[in-house]
Design a protein around this nucleic acid. Sequence first.
DNA 1: GTCTATAAATAGATAGAC
DNA 2: GTCTATCTATTTATAGAC
Lengths: 206, 206
Amino acid sequence: MGPRNAVPRDSRTRVFDAATHEFAERGYEAAGVDRIAASARVNKAMIYYHFGSKLDLYREVLRHMLRAVGERARAIADGPGPAELKLDLWIGTLIAEAAARPWFPPIMLRELASSAEHLDADTVALGNAVFIAVRDIIVQGQQEGTFRDVDPLLIHLTLMPAVLLFFARMRVLKRRPRGTGLLEPRAEEAFVRHMQDVARRMLRKD
Amino acid sequence: MGPRNAVPRDSRTRVFDAATHEFAERGYEAAGVDRIAASARVNKAMIYYHFGSKLDLYREVLRHMLRAVGERARAIADGPGPAELKLDLWIGTLIAEAAARPWFPPIMLRELASSAEHLDADTVALGNAVFIAVRDIIVQGQQEGTFRDVDPLLIHLTLMPAVLLFFARMRVLKRRPRGTGLLEPRAEEAFVRHMQDVARRMLRKD
DNA sequence: GTCTATAAATAGATAGAC
DNA sequence: GTCTATCTATTTATAGAC
């Protein structure tokens, strides 16, 4: 039912998706409302009709992204199993999320680089929720006695940036020819194993 | 000698310094030539006289930054001592560099987020030189038998992003009021110790 | 909901006098 | 080396017809 539900969808969704890609590719400032409209195959005025302003559109993209990641982190933290397993799961999930939605890392990196100047309080709260979930996992492991006593924030600030930059770098490598081979992209599965290994080594007692 | 060599200097240097801060604060696209001129207290035309274009100015800022970091990394790699000590030294140096020149992390993060689109081959080479030096340190440790056999690039891609984001995050925290205290900024010395600990744990044979 | 046309501001860049 | 004045293109955003 409904006429061919393959690609087009409604204009609001098309704008939202086009904006997501434009913001990821060029950043908030360099992104053009005209470019988004063209890419979404809608009239520019429709963007203002649906979203009000460029900034509101951007914030909606960001909230959508952070909410998705935050929910996955929350679900893992609240789920069953020992903390060691949850942390492995979180790392695998975060990397899978970044691989499936390649606009996530660049947008996050840019926002952090610009001191989160485009974020309102609600959006910041969504970002914090991700850390809260990760912290809960680490605290659980400390209570279970399997994790040593380290600052959960420092753990988070070691794992998350590595994932973001790993995928941002992939985009760089796609754009420019390489010489030596030293800097070739690494396989995603190898990266997952590496990050899980890093997490275990950071947290294990001895 | 010379008339009061405190703050002013020549107009070219003033433009260069003002541009560095403007690019760090707002990113390449959002940075304004007018704003740079005002901040440097020079006429806008002087910027084009000295640097040719906004892009050329930006690249000069980036090259200057990457060359400085690359030289420090190279000096450590080529210096005396065991690899374990050199790696500690590199981490301390990188963090000190980021703390002393707070424009370094945001500019790097933005450039990676935008797929290095503003970089020419020379500038990319300067960025690669940093990794080459770090790799040399790790290979030395592997030959000395103190480091286990892990991919140097994955090590680099774990340490470097954490440092960049740690300092980018500091700028965020300065901008907005906080509630919980959970996300308060961490002390720089504690961060150095943490990252050195992470490096050792990643590389030691267990 | 969708379009055209356009307002209003700002951007990067340059010409040319001094 | 330094200035004023300006060109040209592009930007976000809106008014108003349909």
